[in-house]
Simulated assay, not measured.
Amino acid sequence: MMALVAAVDLSAGPGVGYLPLLSLGPAFASLAGGVRRTAWVGLFAIALCAGLARHDEIIGTRAGDATFISVVGVTAAGMLAAAYRERNERELADVRTIAEVAQRVLLRPMPRRVGPVRAAVRYLSASARARIGGDLYEVVMTAQGVRVIVGDVQGKGLDAVETAAVVLGAFREAAYDEPGLPDVADRIERALARQLTSEQFVTGVLAELDPAGRLTLLNRGHPPPLLIRSGRAVQALDPPEPAPPLGLSGLVEEPAAPFSVGFAPGDRVLFYTDGVVEARNDRGVFYPLAERADLLVGADPETALDALQADLLRYAGKPLDDDAAMLMLTTEPSITA
């Protein structure tokens, strides 16, 4: 930029007044460089300004003085802006580090195998400053079998994260103690009663895979999981009757009832949050998850979810508007035989 200004000034001759444009050098340097780089660019601009001012014979004139003042002033302002930007970048890095630590505590790393089940998970946060939000998931091995929760807290921000921590804490205790999924849901409801206001809620689906090969589900207002049979048939596991989300059970007289399906060796089940199916492309069309289920067949669970995540982001073409979590469970013939 400064070389171009110098070339134009030399070709145009004195009296045209291009020299103040040299201040663009330190101005642009402050956008990407640090304080030191901005200072060096500013010093170069001042030296270049002095040489061109001598060539144009304007040293000591009002125009020459105004040019030097403008270059020095922009350099000082650029150094100050660079210092503020670097400080904000350090603070942002600290926020992201803290968020990642919180995520490892709240959403613990998923083991590749939980009892007889292989598990894989992917989490995409819509937050620009952190990698954690209100979606939640957990898989534990209990005496009754493998138990799962996948949920989505209403709202965003730190309040949603705090509520997600309450839900996961209650589930991690109740999953080992309670005999059935309705009892686990009741424990979570009691924990939420001390946390939520009357208008807040958490959608969630609880699941249990027992040693006999039955998958039992209790859906509380959450998108239905997808069951992918080993023969490539895809089935949405809709509950027989709709049920209110967790935190709103007082709206109905009868508690929600669980239901069961067979889960044969080689079958896969995908749990997900609404951030997946509510992702839109540039035409405003929702992501057709059921039509993309072939991405989940055949490949290793980790590879399958990588393919689904890449397809989702490619379909949306931009950062997601909502958090999105995907959890896939599968059993293998060699394990269940």
Rank of each mutant, 00 (worst) to 15 (best):
N281W: 03
L270S: 12
A257C: 08
Y287L: 02
L248W: 03
R280E: 02
P265G: 04
P225Y: 00
S230F: 00
V277Y: 05
A236E: 15
V205C: 14
S198C: 01
F286K: 01
R229A: 03
A207M: 11
G250M: 12
L215T: 12
A236C: 05
V297N: 04
V285G: 01
F271E: 15
Q195R: 15
A299D: 15
S249D: 12
L218D: 14
F271M: 15
Q195N: 14
S198I: 09
I228N: 09
R232S: 11
G298T: 06
N281K: 06
L296D: 06
P265K: 01
A207H: 08
L196K: 10
L251Q: 08
N219K: 01
G204D: 02
T203P: 15
E253I: 12
L296V: 03
P265T: 02
G266Y: 07
L270V: 09
V277E: 09
L227E: 05
L226D: 08
E199C: 00
D274T: 11
P223C: 05
D300C: 03
S198D: 15
G262K: 05
G284A: 02
E208R: 12
Q235G: 01
R220Y: 00
E291Q: 08
L218P: 14
G298A: 04
L270R: 12
V234H: 03
A293Y: 01
G266T: 12
I228H: 05
L289N: 02
A212F: 00
P224T: 07
P223V: 02
G298K: 06
R220A: 06
V234M: 04
L206T: 06
P245H: 11
S260K: 07
R220D: 00
A299H: 11
A207F: 07
L289Q: 01
D238R: 13
L215W: 13
L251Y: 04
L248H: 13
R220T: 01
S249N: 14
Y272Q: 14
G204Q: 03
F201T: 03
P239D: 06
I228T: 07
P245S: 11
L206R: 13
R268I: 11
G213K: 09
G247I: 09
F263I: 08
G221C: 04
L215Y: 10
F271W: 14
L270F: 04
L196Y: 04
D267S: 02
F286I: 02
L192P: 14
T273A: 13
L218H: 09
F201V: 07
E199F: 00
S230D: 10
V269D: 12
G275A: 09
E254Y: 02
R232L: 07
L295R: 07
D267K: 03
L227R: 09
P242Y: 05
G231D: 14
I228L: 15
F271G: 15
E254V: 13
E199V: 05
L251P: 08
T273W: 04
A257W: 06
V276W: 05
P288S: 02
V297H: 12
V269N: 11
V261W: 03
V276R: 05
G250W: 14
G231V: 01
P223M: 03
N219A: 05
L217G: 08
T216C: 11
E199Y: 02
L248R: 08
L196E: 08
R283N: 08
A293H: 01
L227Y: 00
V276E: 10
L217S: 10
S198V: 13
A236Q: 13
L192Q: 07
L248D: 12
L218V: 10
A243G: 15
R220L: 10
V269I: 07
